[in-house]
Nucleic acid binder design. Structure first.
Lengths: 200, 200, 200, 200
DNA sequence: TATGAATGAGTTTTCATTCAT
DNA sequence: GATGAATGAAAACTCATTCAT
């Protein structure tokens, strides 16, 4: 029971941290804000996490894992390399759209924090790129698509998705993401068609 | 002479600011650092700029203008819509590669500064997207390529370029960008190829 | 214990603030001075008070209330309107003389702080004037003295007392205030005596 | 001619200083404000005055001299000690009312500047008190009034006048001073009348 | 004499972190 | 484990004063 309370507190703090970080950005988020929002205390914060930086990194790592798991799982019951790729694109977009706070944290607030965070961001982006690359490679191995440099393509794809989401998040008008999904998917798929004709 | 000195000082401060911001990021850059690096003084800084935020914004605005001018100029003597687009991709990549500090400032350090900077970043990205969109539209009007949603494509392209540059900048190994230019250009062009027609 | 400690710290800071403000004046008093003098820290200062201005205002308000309470209480067991007035004059002088720091803070340092403090000072003076006016009015209603414009008289009295105290505080020689009490009281009483009457 | 220009500049700076000091108070008044307001420059300021403190003191001294001269002059053609006193009261009130900026500077902004200014303020107040005391003494020597402690009375009078003016200056409603002149004069005269006798 | 750009010590305030209870 | 008062090292910004022109 004690154990459970402890975990509960930790969870409350993490949740509060995500709210506050995604709302104010890393630097403008105060440990005090997180403590207040979590309905615990600064002491509790420092009992569970060694520093502000540490909780941010923990959050980042955990978010990346969850988002990637979500995507992998959604792809799972698709068969055929190209099908999986299409499903991946759709799921990434849907997932990011659904977890807006996490997305903003990951894609916006995690950037520009100075060299100290470069490694973390690099790894986060890399993991998403690897996820994409893995399925691209499968499609190549599979013969579904012509050989292409998978990592560059993966980064380019991630960048394209990122930017469309990013601009949508930042935009004052906040148009619906749904309208953008189809054109974006078409674009990405076109970009891996070997040249004209022969894909398929 | 007076006038010249004043402008010289202002320029020294701006240059120093770019160095420091791109090196440490906005939050870790101290006004003191900029003053020292510029070989002037904190007083001079505040004589020329009302605040740390203001000089950052001034820098951002000026960089966007310069980079876009560079690209436009390089494209100028290319003829034919598709030629221009190819030239644009190459120039954007070359320019960003050449002005690495400016690029990092623009694409990395400007992000994640909190809601206060959202507008600035949004505008910066938007201007690059518009530049791309303009030439895409020309290619469509021209009949060089099939009609596509230009703004989404423009953002996607910018994002793709951004991400590849970004990961290269962040990567510890720092591979040469040149090697990435060709695959990236091919990818982007494929994504708008009228000829690919039969994709799926 | 916690509660007591907190209040103790707050009190220490307020006491230190009174010392420092009355010694150096508002502008020359540093928050650092107050922190040092209070034997706590700058952090403690800002934990208990939102700003330097705020603690000064808190001090002002609290001093006015205490001084007025002191006077009211001293007057209480005097009977007869004129008696009360005499007692009030004596007590005001005695109280101000006794709490020299508070007096200097109230009468000297609170002045000249710019328009931002005008309201506070106005209110402080007004409250003292109202105290005097109340008893003057009682004496009039009572038939003890002829009708006079009470507020003007009250301000004039307060000004007379203020100035005599003020000059004594500022004077390098610092003569005893006691010697001044009698002439001042006589003067004030004469100023409301319908005729020369019975002041003696 | 050169000489005249120099004096003109000095005068412009002094005038500007009076405006700015009486408007913002000593501490909030910037040397920059004075330079701008005077339509000269900071260099000119420091050519004519060694420091901000110095110009304030110069202003103070000059104002005291002018105000006292005004009063003395107005009294001059009154004959009889009591007449002179009445004239003095009226003139002081009229003069202060007329030169509102100077009055605010002298009575409000000069106060609370810290020990560094104590001497100046003390002297300013003292000179006004001496002016009053001189004529009170004449009235005593003259037999017009009974002997009283002239300096205490002089300070008390000055304080009474000061406070009434002060509260009027600070008051948000700013009632006319004229209405207060008569009650105040009556009050002061009563305070020295051995009997109520023939005032007026 | 006058100008105004430059200087830099000084000030308030912030906030991550600690620790006694 | 949790609390929240206390700490103090920063950091942005101010402004009287200087001085080259």
């Amino acid at each position: 029971m004690r154990k459970k309370d402890k975990e509960t507190t930790r969870k409350k703090i993490l949740d509060a941290a995500m709210d506050v970080f995604s709302d104010k950005g890393y630097n403008d988020a105060l440990v005090d804000d997180i403590a207040k929002q979590s309905d615990t205390s600064k002491g509790a914060f420092y009992f569970h996490f060694p520093s502000k930086k540490a909780i941010f990194q923990a959050l980042l790592t955990s978010l990346v894992r969850h988002l990637i798991d979500d995507v992998e799982q959604a792809i799972e019951h698709h068969h055929g390399a190209l099908d999986k790729i299409e499903a991946a694109i759709d799921t990434v977009l849907a997932t990011f759209t659904k977890h807006e706070k996490a997305t903003r944290l990951l894609l916006v607030e995690a950037t520009g924090l100075g060299k100290a965070f470069d490694r973390e961001i690099h790894q986060a982006h890399e993991q998403f790129a690897r996820l994409i690359a893995k399925h691209l490679q499968a499609a190549i191995d599979d013969g579904s698509i012509e050989p292409i440099p998978v990592m560059v393509t993966a980064y380019a794809w991630f960048g394209a998705i990122y930017e469309v989401l990013f601009m949508t998040l930042l935009s004052p008008e906040r148009q619906s993401l749904d309208a953008l999904t189809k054109p974006l998917r078409d674009l990405l798929l076109r970009s891996i068609a070997k040249t004209s004709s022969t894909n398929h």
